[in-house]
């Protein structure tokens, strides 16, 4: 079970959260101005990142807030969690110390 740091509450077990998919997708201000292709891109196309992925989580069984996280999809390691509206942080700057390789 992952340990996820809610920006409002701190470290909590994964069971308190729901996953919200890729982050930083902004709903177009005027969807009618988009052609079908552009709308499909917004609606369906996702990055399927291998590596550090910006994604949404909701502390559903806690404070109820949505927030964003940078998670490495190959290791499940969280580089950062941050509030909705904040810019995506630089993952390298906040990489936590991994276990010591021996």
């Amino acid at each position: 079970m992952l340990l996820i740091s809610c920006p409002y509450c701190g470290d909590r077990p994964e069971i308190e959260f729901t996953y919200g998919g890729q982050a930083h997708l902004v709903r177009p201000a005027d969807p009618s101005a988009l052609d079908d292709q552009q709308w499909a891109e917004y609606l369906y196309m996702r990055t399927n990142t291998k590596g550090v992925h910006a994604e949404r989580w909701r502390h559903a069984r806690g404070c109820g807030r949505f927030f964003n996280a940078l998670r490495d999809t190959t290791t499940d390691r969280f580089a950062a969690t941050y509030k909705i509206g904040a810019a995506r942080p630089d993952p390298a700057a906040s990489e936590p110390t991994p276990g010591t390789a021996r």
């Binding site: 290791t75 110390t97 276990g99 390789a101 021996r102």
Partner: peptide, 16 residues
Amino acid sequence: LPDRSAERERSVGACR
């Protein structure tokens, strides 16, 4: 033998 860790852990003794 254990080589690269993914978590904050260490192997000691016969298991390494």
